[in-house]
């Protein structure tokens, strides 16, 4: 029996440009500043991407393949836990759509094919609002939130 799948759709309006938002998703030195992780890939269709935690251990938390790249408007990637890389059924799919808007940019993140009741479903439904809010803050004010899980200096 195939598992039931679900989707999430998140939208954030950001006072920025599509180019800057696209860079903020694909350039490790920027993702680190608001996501606590670096998104590492050469961003060509078929290439592998890795979500590397920005701490001393630099653990790879997520991996997947790049499906579609149309800078600065669209990026589609597959997505799974690093320990499940060899299990095709574990993969979900994330689509970033970046459009100019009266306010600046409308960023829509659609996360499809998540297994209902899975740890990944629980994780991403908590994670995306935080990440997108942090991204908005990072691009608008220069400061994201610290999502690296690093111990804070007292």
């Amino acid at each position: 029996m195939t598992a039931e799948r679900t989707s999430f759709v998140y939208v954030s309006y950001i006072a920025s440009t599509p180019e800057k938002v696209f860079e903020a998703i694909t350039r490790p030195e920027i993702t680190r500043r608001y996501w606590g992780h670096e998104n590492v890939s050469d961003w060509t269709p078929g290439a592998r991407w890795q979500h590397v935690r920005d701490d001393d251990a630099r653990s790879v938390d997520l991996v997947g393949k790049v499906v579609e790249v149309t800078p600065p408007n669209r990026l589609v990637i597959t997505w799974t836990g690093a320990s499940q890389e060899a299990e095709p059924d574990s993969y979900s799919r994330v689509t970033f759509e970046i459009e100019p808007d009266a306010y600046g940019v409308r960023l829509c993140v659609t996360h499809d094919d998540l297994i209902v009741g899975s740890q990944m479903e629980a994780g991403v439904s908590k994670g995306w609002p935080l990440v997108l809010s942090s991204l908005k803050s990072c691009l608008e004010t220069g400061k994201g939130f610290d999502l690296s899980g690093r111990a804070k200096a007292a």
Binding site: S7, V11, L130, L132, S133
Partner: peptide
């Protein structure tokens, strides 16, 4: 779809 991003903001 519920979009909790503005709530996070």
């Amino acid at each position: 779809f519920i979009n909790p991003v503005p709530l996070q903001d």
